[in-house]
Design a protein around this nucleic acid. Structure first.
Lengths: 343, 343
DNA sequence: TTGTATGCGTTATCAT
DNA sequence: ATGATAACGCATACAA
């Protein structure tokens, strides 16, 4: 039935006739304090309803034990799984996670980096907004020795940690898989992004796989979407199917795009995978619900989150400043399901 | 090229020959400071690379401008949409959001409430863990005037804000819809939860709809799942279909359960919706990908998040302590799609 | 309109 | 093993 009374270490000190410094040390089980005192203090603390004030400790210690996560949105299977990985790992280490959404806006992202800095987060994990090309606003972190990890959508040039997959190799593998199924006219549906390199890397893989297998590159078979709205994707798919020379395979840079293309094809009576083999990217839950089940590229979202957290934590725990700003590349694999399995 | 130098208001004061209090007020655009001084201070601040330290301000003000969100997991469409709503609203008001996952464990939930309290969050939004029956660990918030909102999975008895849907009415509506389609033997697949009342409310609605329409209640047609794993749900569905008297309609308390049931039925050649009409709950993205498209109950996740945030914010902004711990009930509606549309 | 002084709750340094 | 005290960066009551 305690009310507004915030119990502090002063109250404990008064009650036990000890100094605040002793109380503080006892609460932290400092080795220089006798076990007897530690027990006594902790007992009194719970009795009096003492709750440590992290704010004060953080101010004093100049470290907050919270990791800032800045990403386009939470409401996307890949990103929410990534956050989940970040959060679980951080939580185990006693760190909190604050999350901010840029909504894919450069301007919001800039503001939020300020806000993260002002909150004195111990480390930052960021998946860049679609709009972002320039990453100068992250300099504030590196300048102030705050570990920074870019994940998935990473800048091309940056002397910071990066956690990613090999998008080029994945794009190549996906395309090669379709070729192995006998596809000769493979379309590519992707997102138009001027700067983000993940889609352009996937496309590069696609192009090289075609080249390496002596397949012709047809610009009409490459579609760049401005957004992944249902309408826009559907329109694009229909345009592909209406070509004089329609595709017999589609590599979509995301599962939703692939799924919409499949739905679209089915409406037109196109047989999948016989007439059209389709492969997506990400392994969203959706990919196992669409019929036929969608072949796709696994994307270790949760693991990427964990890896990012671990880099931050390692960097924070060890005082030895290693300036290795290295790149972590996680594996992907082709998941073959019914949408592309011809043999 | 600034290094470890943290610029504080002291530095600004020294530089401009002003008192720290003047600097502080100027930075906050306090009305008692001349515009000229305000401009001068702000200019110097940006020049010197000053960044406010929220930590210090929070300690001083005894308010952190952060909202704590405690829920089972992030990686679920409904919950990530909910968080998104919380976060967007909070962000607009200049509040941060820290997120913690209980992983549906009571023990973790208890620990995390402590941790949230120690972080001195300004308010708390919580969706209870599946395991949680007793909510005494939240008393610390109400005792200390920290606004607390339970959302979706709320405790039955609690003098705190609650944001939810009318699960009873929704269950009733869903069942009534199937009855309207001519179903006579309607099964109900739900989650076994001893305490959480959302599933039991939905079931109550189901039962009452049957009664009100003079349909017999058959215990064999009611399935309580321990988890929503694919395997367990599939087994349960098959058991239903193997009954002497199999159902001609299914009301599942979640979309995934409904989807698995549909997939299972299709494998057995059961025609949907002609032989079996199915309706789910939540309106997950998945529900529009399964074929036939799944009828379901809309669940305003994003809105629930917003509403929760707004309650916290309103409570924080106004100093007038209104002790109205009221319940916000949001609307749901039946979304009729192909899986249940018979006429 | 601006300045002085103090406290928010901790932890760390230096002493005892 | 324990104590006294300063400091973290900011905001406010009070004074001028």
């Amino acid at each position: 039935m305690k009310k507004n009374t915030e119990v502090t270490i002063y109250d404990l000190a008064k009650k036990l006739n000890l100094a605040t410094s002793t109380i503080s040390r006892a609460l932290n089980s400092h080795h220089s304090i006798s076990q007897k005192t530690i027990d006594k203090v902790k007992k009194a603390a719970t009795e009096m309803g003492y709750r440590p004030n992290n704010l004060a400790a953080s101010l004093r210690n100049k470290k907050t034990k919270t990791i800032g996560v800045l990403l386009p949105t939470i409401a996307q299977p890949f990103l929410s799984a990534l956050i989940s990985g970040v959060e679980t790992t951080a939580q185990e280490a006693g760190y909190n996670v604050v999350i901010m959404q840029s909504h894919d806006s450069y301007e919001e992202e800039v503001n939020l980096t300020q806000s993260l800095y002002s909150s004195r987060v111990s480390g930052v994990i960021c998946c860049l907004a679609m709009e972002t090309s320039d990453t100068a606003h992250f300099k504030i972190f590196t300048d102030n020795n705050i570990p920074l990890v870019f994940v998935d959508r990473v800048p091309k040039h940056a002397d910071t940690y990066r956690v990613m997959i090999d998008n080029y190799a994945a794009g190549y593998k996906a395309t090669k898989h379709l070729i192995d199924q006998g596809c000769l006219k493979i379309a590519h549906i992707t997102r138009a992004s001027e700067f983000g390199n993940i889609y352009s890397e996937r496309k590069k893989g696609y192009l090289d796989a075609l080249k390496d297998n002596n397949l012709q590159i047809d610009a009409k078979l490459i579609v760049n979407l401005k957004s992944v709205s249902y309408e826009e994707t559907e329109t694009a798919a229909n345009k592909l199917f209406n070509l004089k020379n329609p595709p017999d395979g589609i590599f979509a840079a995301g599962d939703m795009m692939a799924i919409i293309a499949i739905q679209c094809a089915k409406k037109r009576g196109i047989k999948i995978p016989e007439e059209l083999a389709v492969i997506g990217f990400n392994n969203d839950p959706n990919s196992r619900i669409i019929e036929p089940n969608l072949s796709t590229i696994s994307h270790p979202a949760e693991k990427m989150g964990q890896a990012s957290s671990e880099i931050i934590l390692k960097n924070l725990e060890q005082s030895t400043k290693d300036d290795i700003r290295d790149i972590t590349v996680l594996n992907t694999e082709v998941l073959v399901r019914e949408s592309s399995k011809r043999k």
